[in-house]
Amino acid sequence: MDNSTSSVQQALAAQQYIASDQIATVLFLADRLGKPLLIEGPAGVGKTELAKAWSAVTDRELIRLQCYEGLDEAKALYEWEYAKQMLYTQLLRDKLNHVLADAVTLAEAADRLASEEDIFFSERFLLQRPLLKAILNDRPTLLLIDEIDRSDAEFEAFLLEVLSDFQVSIPELGTLQARQQPTVILTSNNTRELSEALKRRCLYLFIDYPTLEEELRIVQLKVPGMAPRLAQQAVELVQRLRKLDLKKAPSVSETLDWARALVLLNAQALDQQVLDQTLTVLLKHEADLQKAQRLLNPRDYGRDMGGRFSRS
């Protein structure tokens, strides 16, 4: 392990994030090369969490853009604050009258008004959305573009333009250049294929579910009140559940929720009653729950399997 990457690992650990060698290496590289980093992986393995921890480590302000279907420039980049413009016009009416009072012709009045229009299209009335905010921020910034796979292909193309030279042109104002180059982290849950062009520009990191030892360390770090033996049992069960063919496998964040629930209920061991009470924290689908029950109570297994066979 390199000195430089192990220091990344330590710094992340100080932020309560346990990073594998792979994660540390790639983060280090992204930082050195000044490249955007694309993080993929199943939901809830700590992709967003990693970005937050990294912003704390590098002392960068975190600006987050949550993507969704239908997200467009107006909501991601900037918008003119129309209501504020109107309000100002109303309030400044007297002053406007005064400025325009000695204009003789209509044309002259229009010219004079035009020479003042910069006031109304200045940064004062610009509603900054996350992308513009990240570009114009004076402080070092970490721009987190979350769940990019949920946005549309068009938005992705637009994003490419912004990410490649960190400048934005606003017709009324001209081109705004980034005051500092933000670190960019994109996350994706892999629900759709991202464009080749976007992937080409980014470094790539795939975070998978942690191994048993890693997950145990995470649980112990985040839920310190948990008895070691119980934590071990709980994590082992979660790892076993992930091997089942579930609609949604339990994520790390769900493991943590569950661990907290167990601590709150003051559970001593994973007995049937505790499981019945808390398994819904871990599994959110009825079918998944039933499968898990079958795994935990092999007694009922035969009956259920019989049912399945006779149906098909």
Binding site: D2, L29, C202, Y204
Partner: peptide
């Protein structure tokens, strides 16, 4: 940046920069 001395990080370096699909 990272050099080639450490085989593990060399491998990660190549993978993060070249392979963009799991």
């Amino acid at each position: 940046e990272l050099g080639i001395e450490d085989r593990g990080s060399f491998r990660e370096t190549l993978r993060a920069t070249l392979v963009k699909d799991v």
